[in-house]
Design a protein around this nucleic acid. Structure first.
Lengths: 240, 240
DNA sequence: CTCAATTTGTTCGTATGTATG
DNA sequence: ACATACATACGAACAAATTGA
């Protein structure tokens, strides 16, 4: 049943169980099926189930009591708290609403800009900001920003201590003429995994976002990585 | 370096290597670093590298020759051939452009509709279509459609043999008043994995798409699953 | 043609992890 | 908890193929 993947069986089972809990198939607070039932359902041995449940118990998702059963101990059905914005207004609102803590990372302040996709012209100089955004003490994205040096220098304090997008949108002297972003699903490398506290090779959503001024020059370029599980995208197909 | 995840080391390394090739860090046709260099880079043993390269060679991504080196044998830099549509026009175009083969799956023809998100009202009766879409002989999505029974019955042949969306959009007697979709990243279960030829627990993009008529009644509801790696989403943040 | 350098492939011993019944 | 089997991972040494001097 699981032969296609060489990931250890107990991890695959753990992921399926977690999926059931996120889906609400196994509701918060209720008992999950007994080991005998799970053996039949997944066609795996008791020890494999133990490994899977060890994983889930270690992060507090289930609580096991001998003689009683295993119960869902964490509500994962409302876990997805990050909606990828599809318009500038929404983007500003999303970022502003988040209570975040910024963790600045060291790095060369000025570095050449190498956009992941062709859109706009590179400007003369950029300030490079690299940081981790936190939400509820949990890292939720790793972001690397290239901000036009002139704009950054007009308020270094502000841009260094809070999300950049709302500040840009609020300024009268900065005109954003074009704004595009591309999202892909990839896997995390060692560096990203360490900062987001996930495993190397775990899926991440990789977002590249670019703002241009009227002369098609790049004033803001951001490369953002989110753990993929927390991403949700809503689209109104008839918006225009 | 890889302790966070309990996925076998050689698989994690294989994923990172694949990522490098997709990224163009290791270009098509060129030699990748030698085993000695890779040992130092990833801090793993030769045997682990062998396992990782076995994986990649088995699917033809690299070619190894003793005494010569290991070379990138497949161009993965342009692999992302599925763009998730963000408007109805784009959706129709995307589906129409794809050369697809449909693999109908058995299933109860009529089944109650249980939308994954609250939007619109359930109609009186639906035809349920479940199929795999192919592209270049490779499965690229598993789709389950609930189509208003009246509409289906007006052209059962057509709806059973080709993508539904373009047919719906082309019809003068069907007015789509609202169209929404939601995408999440989850993991595949056994059934999905088997149809898409991926591993259980591999990341998938889970899309729910709903069309309503003027009376807010659901005329089309689709639940679609794609392997996550092939998804790309482009957004113009200033479209409106 | 031969030799040396380079590079992948294989083997051994050992330890630990995974999985079944 | 036990007996068993197989997979994963390390380090080190050795073997075999390719290239170019």
């Amino acid at each position: 049943m699981f032969q296609k993947s060489r990931v250890p069986l107990y991890l695959q089972v753990a992921r399926l169980m977690r999926h059931k809990i996120e889906n609400g198939d196994w509701p918060y607070g209720e008992q999950i099926p007994t080991l005998d039932e799970l053996e039949r359902e997944y066609k795996v041995s008791r020890i494999t189930l133990r490994g899977a449940l060890d994983q889930l118990e270690a992060v507090g998702i289930v609580k096991r009591t001998r003689g009683l059963g295993t119960f869902v101990a964490k509500d994962l059905s409302e876990q997805r708290w990050f909606k990828l914005a599809s318009s500038m207004d929404e983007l500003v609102r999303t970022v502003a609403d988040l209570k975040i803590r910024l963790l600045p990372l060291q790095g060369d302040a000025s570095q050449p800009l190498a956009p992941a996709f062709n859109f706009g012209l590179a400007g003369p100089a950029y300030e490079r900001l690299r940081r981790v955004h936190y939400h509820n003490e949990e890292p939720y994205c790793l972001i690397e920003i290239h901000l036009d040096k002139k704009i950054f220098d007009s308020d270094p304090q502000g841009f260094s201590s809070a999300p950049v997008v709302p500040q840009l949108a609020a300024r009268k002297d900065v005109k954003i003429a074009h704004a595009k972003q591309v999202m892909r699903i990839t896997v995390s490398d060692e560096d990203t995994a360490a900062h987001l506290d996930i495993g190397v090779g775990d899926p991440i959503a990789d977002v590249c976002r670019v703002f241009l001024d009227e002369r098609m020059q790049i004033i803001y370029y951001a490369h953002i990585q989110y753990p993929a599980q927390m991403i949700q995208i809503e689209t109104d197909l008839l918006r225009c």
